[in-house]
């Protein structure tokens, strides 16, 4: 991380499914580099022998039982309720722009 990272911001934006105008990119680039430079201070730490910590919880996470709920949570939704918030839906399906020619 020590040497200046040359970030291909356009590539990262494409991965994140985001778009920026030229002006936005200029401001963004400068801020992005300042943040990365600040972040790179963790390079001072000796970390090779430290176990990564992915959660404050000890032990593995539970899985909930797979099944319909009592209707008070998302598991009991009807098809109509599930698509009720969609910008576009038809007969209980989500509608998206054409993906197959």
């Amino acid at each position: 991380m020590k040497e200046k990272i040359n970030i291909d911001v356009q590539r990262v934006a494409a991965l994140a499914r985001l778009e920026f105008t030229e002006d936005e990119l200029k401001v963004f680039n400068a801020q992005f580099h300042a943040i990365l430079e600040y972040i790179s201070q963790i390079d001072e730490l000796e970390l090779d022998d430290v176990e990564p910590m992915s959660s404050p919880l000890p032990g593995p996470q539970r899985l909930r039982p797979d099944g319909l709920g009592d209707g008070r949570d998302a598991r009991g939704l009807t098809k109509d309720a599930a698509v009720a918030n969609a910008p576009e839906s038809k007969k209980g399906f989500f509608v998206v722009p054409r993906v197959i020619e």
Partner: peptide, 13 residues
């Protein structure tokens, strides 16, 4: 980045 940060997180804990 992510890997190092996860390790440093343990030091803080």
């Amino acid at each position: 980045f992510y890997g190092k940060a996860q390790r440093a997180r343990r030091l803080i804990k």
